[in-house]
């Protein structure tokens, strides 16, 4: 008869040593994206974020639950597809009574996922954006999705894409492209800051099964 042990196995244990600051919440707080006054540790799970959140309204995603799992130091959340449902609309960020931001926590979690293959796979279909930026210094709608867009937007949109230069001229607008030397310095900047390496490593995931 050994009831005690069975129960004890389920209990967490908070060691008496100085509270370690390498848990998920503290990693997030130290991230470059985290504002210095991010209220992550002040969260009382009131649920205001969830009740205003469009992703929570339309999917299994639950903004409050994201924070709960972070505070529980549940690292499996990094690999959980659910973090990819946030719209980055910042509604939670703008109303949180304790100054937390689920939106920004999500952005950090996704970057942590991108450090692993699981995250790279989520974004590899957007890599034409990176290519465009490296070539032109301009953002674009990712080419990978043009197929569906042509269906949704119809022939008019294709006409627009094909005749964009003339349309812009009719409107009296200058070229939308950067000056050649500016393009070059964008490319140099992105090389210097390590973005090119990042792009290559994300693209590599395509070669792994």
């Amino acid at each position: 008869m050994d009831y005690g042990c069975v129960i004890l196995k389920k209990l967490g244990r908070r060691e008496m040593t100085n509270e370690s600051e390498d848990d998920l919440a503290h990693k997030i707080l130290k991230d470059i994206k985290a504002p210095s006054d991010l209220g992550l540790l002040r969260c009382v799970q009131c649920g205001l974020c969830t009740s205003m959140c469009p992703a929570s309204r339309h999917s299994e995603y639950d903004a409050r639950e994201i924070i709960k799992r972070v505070l529980d130091n549940d690292e499996s959340i990094i690999e959980d597809e659910i973090i990819w449902n946030c719209f980055y609309c910042y509604t939670c960020h703008s109303v949180c009574p304790v100054g937390n931001s689920v939106c920004e926590v999500n952005q950090i979690l996704r970057q942590m996922a991108i450090d692993k293959d699981v995250g790279k796979k989520q974004i590899e279909s957007f890599m034409s954006f990176a290519d465009s930026f490296l070539e032109e210094g301009l953002g674009i709608i990712p080419k990978e999705y043009h197929g569906q867009l042509k269906i949704d937007y119809g022939k008019h949109w294709e006409n627009l894409q094909e005749n964009l230069q003339e349309v812009r001229e009719e409107l009296g607008l200058d070229s939308m492209f950067l000056l050649p030397e500016a393009k070059e310095s964008v490319d140099k900047t992105l090389d210097a800051i390590g973005f090119k390496k990042r792009v290559d490593s994300i693209k590599e995931v395509r070669n792994r099964k």
Binding site: I32, K33, Y88, Q107, R110, Q111, I114, G119, Q122, I123, F126, M127, F129, A130, F133, G139, I140, I141, P142, L190, I193, G194, F195, R198, V199, I202
Partner: peptide, 12 residues
């Protein structure tokens, strides 16, 4: 756009 597609990191 790329930033919020999570392609761009904050540093870049």
């Amino acid at each position: 756009l790329g930033h919020y597609y999570d392609i761009f990191d904050e540093l870049s």
